[in-house]
Each structure stands twice: as C-alpha cells, then as structure tokens.
Amino acid sequence: MNNFIFQNGTKVYFGKGCVKEYLACLTRKADTILLAYGGGSIKHNGVYDEITGILKEAGKTIVEFSGIMSNPTYAKVQEGAKLARDNHVDMILAVGGGSTMDCCKAVSLAAQYGGDIWDDFWARPGVIDFAPLPLGVVVTVAGTGSECNGGAVITHEEKKIKTGRDYPQLNPSFALMDPTYTYSVPVKQMISGGFDILSHIMETYFSEPNEDNVSDDIMEALMKSVIRNLRASIKNPEDYVARSNLMWDSTMAENRVIKMGKKCDFECHNMEHQLGAYTNCNHGCGLAVLHPVYYRHIYKAGLPKFVRFAQNVWGIAQEGKTDEELALAGIDALADFIKELGLPTTLKELGAEKSQLNEIADSCSISQGSYKTMTHEEILAIFQECYE
C-alpha cells in the first residue's frame, strides 16, 4: 500500500426510519434551516411532508431553496447563498441526490465567503480557512456518494466548464440514509445512478498501484455488489436488500476508503463533465457511453488490472485466451452490461452535435492518474468513436 492519510467527518445514520428517529435531534442547535431540494419529487412521495413535519414540530423556521437542477449551476449556488444570508440561516438541510448535495456544499461555502467561490475554490484549488455553514443531508437517490465527502461538481454556464473539487471542510456533518426513500426514484434514474456508482469504483480501480492492495480487493467486491443489486433492483424496485446494498455501495465508492493508496484516474469523468457542460446530458448516461471506448484505448497500458477485472468481476476464465483477449473480454462484458441496463451507447443519443466534439475535447482536463495519459487529440478520437 502507498502512504495515505484518511479522514471522514460525516456521521451516517442508515436504515429504515432513520429520518423520523434522528432528524429532530440532529437539528436541535439550528433555529432557521434552509431546506434544499430539486424539482419537487419529494412533495409527491411523502418525503417533504415527513421532513417538514418533523422540523415544524421542533419549532424550526424553514426557508425553502427548491429547483436545484441535475447539473447544478454556479448561478443556482449564488441564489442559495443569498437566501441563506438574507434569512440568517443556521443550517442547510439538503434533501435529494448528488446534484442537491453538491449544490448545497457550494452554498455552505458561498454563504460565509465574501469573494467569488468559483474563482477562488473551483477554477483552482483553494484553502478554506473559515467555517462553512453547517450542512446535513437526507439521501433520496443512490449514485454519487456525495453524502460522505466534500466533493461538489458545479457547472459555470457562461464559461462552459463543469468541474468538481473535494474539500474535507465541506463534508456534511451528518447523512440520513433511509433506503425506502429511493423506492420512488424512476427506474431510468435509478439505473443511471447505479452506473455512476460502478463508474466511481472503476475510475479508482483502474489506476496504480497494481501490486496486491486492500483497496483493489474491496473494489472488486463492490463492483460485483453493484452489478448484482442493480439487476435485482430493476426486477423489483422495492427489494429492500438490493436497494439498501446499492445505497451503501454508492457511499463506499466515494467516502474515500477505496481511494486510499490509489492514484485514481477519473479521465472519463473529466470527459463527461465537459459533455455535460455543453449538452446538459445525464451524468450516468454519459459515463456509460464513454467507459468501454476509453478502456479499449488504455487497456494495454494497464493490462494486468484489466485481466484481473475480467476474471474477478465478470468471472471470465483465462483458458484459451491471451491476456489481451481476456482483458478485452472483460471490457466487452462491461459493454454488454450497459446494453442490458438499457443505457445509451452513443453520444448522438445524448444530444451532442458532431460539430461540438472538437471544442469539447479541447476543453477537457487531462488526468495524471490514468494508465495512459490522454492527449486532446485522443480524447477527440474517443468522442468520434462514441458518436454513433
């Protein structure tokens, strides 16, 4: 194992009924709460009524911050920060999936900062030497794992840049995770989020070191869990065992545990973020299009790991195959799984225009953790191969 320092400041309350049991206690020090959510689905599935009922019974003043979009923008962050400041908010409660949580992390920073947080913390890494506004989250969608890290992906619409930063100070202080809250998520959204979980794990797995390490062992188990439980959840969306496993898979993928001692790649995420900045496409769908093609570009540089992926995750036997053939069989198994899930397989399906690809490729940042360092020319070639 390589050297590392591990820290996670989020306390997790997991399981059926956890919101009813713990929310009032966790918000006892706050008088005014900024209740943040997305398009309003929580008003149709009973989550909104349950949470506001608990807060009102506890005597809290609720300030609503709604309409957080699937790719949260810097303008939306500024809107939330102004609401928090104008209403002297003591705590933010983000109810939703990764977009809501990411947006609220940025709001918690912007509400307490006098400068431009994009320029000082997202355009480049910054130093947070002050206390952001306290943040708690109620998770309703499994996917990003944002509940147990300080990462926030924000889109600057004017600059056409979508980027993420991870600051430990932005970790939510608590995360309430009731798997039954995910039952009402549309199947397509559940599948997209499930693939995002798998992508997060693969982005870490396919990176150095290659020698035996605990992180890779954990990731192989997690990948098999995501595959198994996503299939079960599609068959029965209210399978509590499957939905609870997927929810914790999502957290484990991004709570920093599996990243210990790993370089991490995330080039596919870099490429998808810029596709999202230009097309506003669904994140998990964009990743599904890119991953198999990207891996066919890099597998020779990380051959031992791709062989291990084929054998230990997909159960493909070596017999009669060279290492290269086995590695490609593992990538093909991934591509077949994407088709099985009904996810898109071309950029054209995501609404990308062929004329945009050159500009999007040039805007992508280059990962230093990849087995093979990309160039903008090769990124463009990947986009072109993915187009139709």
Rank of each mutant, 00 (worst) to 15 (best):
I5W: 05
K11P: 00
V12R: 13
G17H: 09
C18F: 04
V19G: 06
V19R: 07
V19E: 09
K20V: 05
C25Y: 12
K29I: 02
Y37S: 14
E57K: 15
A58P: 11
V63Q: 12
T73P: 09
V77L: 11
G80P: 07
A84Q: 09
N87G: 03
M91A: 04
V95P: 01
T100C: 13
D102I: 07
K105H: 12
A106P: 04
L109H: 05
A111N: 13
Q112D: 07
Q112V: 13
G114H: 06
W118E: 12
W122H: 05
A123L: 14
V127K: 15
D129H: 12
A131M: 03
P132R: 02
P134S: 10
V137L: 00
G143P: 03
S146G: 13
C148G: 01
C148L: 13
G150E: 11
G151I: 03
G151L: 07
I154H: 11
T155M: 13
K159G: 13
G164D: 07
R165L: 06
D166Q: 10
P168V: 14
Q169A: 15
G194I: 00
F195L: 13
F195H: 02
I197G: 02
I197F: 00
M202A: 04
M202T: 10
T204K: 14
S207Q: 04
P209A: 08
P209F: 10
S215R: 01
S215N: 04
M219V: 10
A221M: 12
V226M: 10
S233P: 05
P237A: 08
E238I: 02
V241W: 03
A242W: 00
S250V: 04
M252A: 11
M252F: 06
N255C: 15
M260S: 13
K262I: 03
D265P: 05
C268Q: 11
Q274H: 01
N280E: 15
G284Q: 07
G284S: 09
G286Y: 01
V293M: 06
H297F: 12
G302M: 01
L303M: 14
F309S: 05
F309Q: 11
K321F: 02
E324R: 07
G330F: 02
I331V: 08
I331N: 11
L334K: 03
L334Q: 07
A335K: 11
D336G: 12
F337Q: 06
L343Q: 01
T345A: 05
T346K: 14
K348N: 10
G351D: 11
A361M: 09
D362I: 08
I366K: 02
L380K: 04
A381F: 06
I382N: 03
F383S: 08
